[in-house]
Amino acid sequence: MADENYPDGLLYHPEHDWARIEGEEATLGITWFAQDALGEVVFFDPPAVGSTLTANESYAEVESVKAVSDVYAPLSGEVIAVNDDLSGSPERINDDPYGEGWLVRIKTAEASERDSLLDVAAYRELLGR
């Protein structure tokens, strides 16, 4: 399991998801707080490549021993890649939530949506940590 951390340079969504912006694309995942609350992840059900994500709506589910949880899209866009390694090794979401535990990559639809997301300081404040 990873140590608690919230990297700089990522944008955060109040439902505990992160986005790494790379030009017109973004990589998405869930934060350390989310994977800690879930417990050991046993299954990730990804959306199809080519499907559309809508900001603030659920686009996938993460299942742990305790619960099934919705994953919320921080940004809207078209799914261009999903992390296939997670089907064999879902624990990567726990061990490396910002690296090998990435969930999907999208082509972002609307640049202005980024302004509604939180930076690391604001997200930490939301968490009270």
């Binding site: 417990g39 050991e40 992840v41 046993v42 299954f43 742990s64 021993v65 624990e91």
Partner: peptide, 8 residues
């Protein structure tokens, strides 16, 4: 028990 292992 290894609950995660049992689930996977």
């Amino acid at each position: 028990l290894d609950e995660a292992g049992a689930a996977r």
